[in-house]
Simulated scan of single mutants.
Amino acid sequence: VASRKISARVKPDYVVIGEASNCNLKIGQRGRAEILVETFGKPAHSANPEKGINAVYKMNKLIEAIRKLKLSTHPFLGDGILELTDIKSSPYPGASVVPDYCRATFDRRLLVGETRESVLKPIQDIIKKLEGEDAEFKAKVSFSKGKERCYTGNEIEGERFFPGWLYDRKDEFVEKAYNGLKKAGIDPEITHYSFCTNGSHYAGEAGIKTIGFGPSKENLAHTVNEYIEISQLTKAVEGYYTIVKEVLS
């Protein structure tokens, strides 16, 4: 979301993402979406559950149907993923009340070309089918929204849908970046990020030429003992210089 503000102001011609790549050249990534599914019931005292509609039981049916969805795969980026990450009912704690609301969150890893509409449609179809089979079943699906307060006090917010992106190995920017790294004495592997980066905006939304190149190992990112070896850091500095030099030549 912050990247949208940056690109609107800076209007870059090219972007180099500095996320950890072990000094390899990244030309794409899967995107990420956070999906909310909600079920709605009717509260009642748990001593008389037949007078209510338990939203958690309805959620169970929905989750089991969602687990059967077949997601697409990509020969370079890998599999699309739809994984349940949390579930919560209301009221909580229940205190002898049949829950009338339940919310589950799914982490969805996106492949190139997937849209907001195409991602939600399979779940919408499941909801419609279950509603046809059960008059008491009521549910909806949407993307979650995030809001963060910046150090300036300003708030940024947006829908948690960040598309995947991928460039061809023969793309001019990719080739120039690769040649620049080779001139720096770096022999990079051309691959993709295993996690989501702000390339989702720059490449996926804004269509700005984007690559990833950075020091340290990907599996260290966001861990408690994250670190960068000095040799990797100095190699990356030289790599950034030669990428820019090659692109501007």
Rank of each mutant, 00 (worst) to 15 (best):
A44F: 15
I87C: 09
P163D: 10
N54D: 03
Q232G: 11
A44N: 06
Y241A: 15
S200V: 07
S46R: 02
V15R: 00
G207Q: 03
A95R: 06
Y227A: 15
F143E: 01
R149N: 09
K121D: 06
I190K: 03
P91R: 02
R169H: 08
C102P: 01
V237A: 15
G199H: 06
I17Y: 07
E19C: 06
N154R: 08
Y101T: 02
S96F: 15
F173D: 02
K145C: 09
E159Q: 08
E229G: 06
E189P: 13
F161A: 10
A236L: 10
N198Q: 05
N219M: 05
E114Q: 07
K176Q: 08
I6C: 07
N225T: 08
G164W: 10
V174A: 09
S231P: 02
T152G: 14
A184H: 03
H45C: 12
G94L: 12
E218V: 06
D13A: 09
I81Y: 06
G28H: 04
G164P: 10
H74D: 14
R32P: 07
I63E: 02
C23W: 08
I63S: 03
Y92C: 13
D125H: 01
T39G: 07
G158H: 04
Y101E: 07
D187K: 03
F143Q: 01
N198V: 11
G153P: 06
E148R: 11
G204L: 02
H74S: 06
V244Y: 03
E64T: 03
I127S: 00
K128A: 13
L111D: 08
G180I: 05
Q124I: 01
R116V: 13
S249I: 05
E226L: 06
S249C: 08
I127G: 01
K235A: 15
G212W: 11
D168N: 14
P75S: 11
F76R: 11
R9K: 10
E34H: 06
G28T: 06
Y14F: 15
F76G: 08
H222C: 12
Q29K: 00
L71Q: 05
T210V: 12
F106P: 00
R103V: 13
K140R: 15
H192D: 05
K11L: 12
R4W: 13
Q124P: 09
D13E: 08
I6L: 14
I17P: 09
T197V: 11
L166N: 04
D171Y: 15
N179Q: 11
A104F: 01
A2G: 09
C196P: 05
E205M: 07
I6W: 15
D187G: 05
Y241P: 01
I243D: 03
E83C: 07
H45R: 01
F76Q: 09
A55L: 09
L69A: 11
Y101C: 05
F173Q: 00
G185F: 04
N154A: 14
R30V: 12
G18R: 00
T197P: 14
T234L: 14
A135N: 04
C196F: 04
N219G: 09
L248C: 13
S249G: 14
K182I: 14
G94I: 10
Y14G: 04
Y101F: 13
E159Y: 01
D187N: 12
K51Q: 14
P122Q: 00
